[in-house]
């Protein structure tokens, strides 16, 4: 028996919107720790890892570990039927081949049940090692989204370079080139507007912009984004989900041929 009640149901709606472009089908795993998902895109270039900790739910009952295969576009169709202020409850019985999403309006005058068929998904679970990153950049998520969008109108790839000067996002295409440098800036009114660069050593990596743009669908989940870079690892683009957990996107770099 599984029953997860999330008062801030809009969080779940935003989570689905953040990942459904990248991943078609995925297993949602429920355990005492929380509600999680790990999945790669079809070409195995990017990986998404989601965690919503059990403590973040108003009610969290998960009698035994359960993995539920879902088509994310179908989940999204269901969740789009929930109001932004609705309380969302996810329910499933042991051994059942369906999951139920229950939506309650804030004043309890409307209650809806949407039952969705589950599917069997063969998915590989990858071990993600703890790593020391050469550079970690924290910046406003809207600024990062803007940079990715702007650069993708010029080129297909972005070179992200971190030096003492700051973080530089560069691209090149048929019509020309573009470089955007963000310097560390801690003197802002609100901490979420700061750009903070922790650099152990300079690093420069190249990535496909298409994927970066897809990651920025998570922007509504967090005011800030953290980008962790090391020369021998996929970049991690992390959006923290307040009080609950995170969405982390891993993107494999382009390498010299």
């Amino acid at each position: 028996m599984l029953e997860l009640r999330l008062v801030q149901g809009s969080l779940l709606k935003k989570v689905l919107e953040a990942i459904r472009e990248l991943v078609t089908d995925a297993n949602f795993d429920c355990s005492a720790t929380g509600f999680s998902l790990q999945a790669m895109d079809s070409s195995h270039v990017a990986l998404v890892a989601l965690l919503l900790r059990s403590e973040g739910f108003e009610h969290y009952r998960c009698d035994r570990n359960l993995s539920m295969g879902m088509n994310l576009n179908n989940v999204s169709k269901m969740l789009r039927c929930a109001g932004n202020n609705d309380i969302i409850t996810v329910k499933a019985d042991d051994g059942s081949d369906t999951v139920t999403f229950m939506f309650e309006s804030p004043n309890q005058d409307k209650i809806a049940d949407f039952e969705m068929k589950l599917m069997d998904i063969d998915s590989e679970h990858l071990g993600i090692p703890d790593a020391e990153y050469q550079a970690i950049v924290r910046m406003p998520s809207s600024e990062f989204a803007r940079i990715c969008k702007d650069l993708s109108s010029i080129g297909d790839t972005v070179i992200i370079s971190v030096t003492k000067e700051g973080v530089k996002f560069s691209t090149a295409g048929d019509i020309g080139t573009a470089n955007i440098v963000c310097r560390q800036n801690k003197t802002v009114d609100k901490p979420e507007e700061a750009t903070i660069i922790e650099m152990q050593e300079p690093v420069s990596l190249t990535f496909a912009l298409r994927y970066m743009n897809s990651f920025t669908k998570a922007t509504p989940l967090s005011e800030t984004v953290t980008i962790s870079l090391s020369s021998d690892l996929p970049v991690v683009v992390e959006y923290k989900i307040a009080e609950m957990g995170y969405i982390r996107f891993y993107l494999a770099p382009k390498i010299e041929e």
């Binding site: 990986l47 990858l126 021998d232 996929p234």
Partner: peptide
């Protein structure tokens, strides 16, 4: 722009 690597080049199946 270089050759695109994949996640499985870096992370192992568990």
């Amino acid at each position: 722009g270089g050759k695109q690597s994949t996640i499985t080049n870096f992370f192992r199946k568990v």
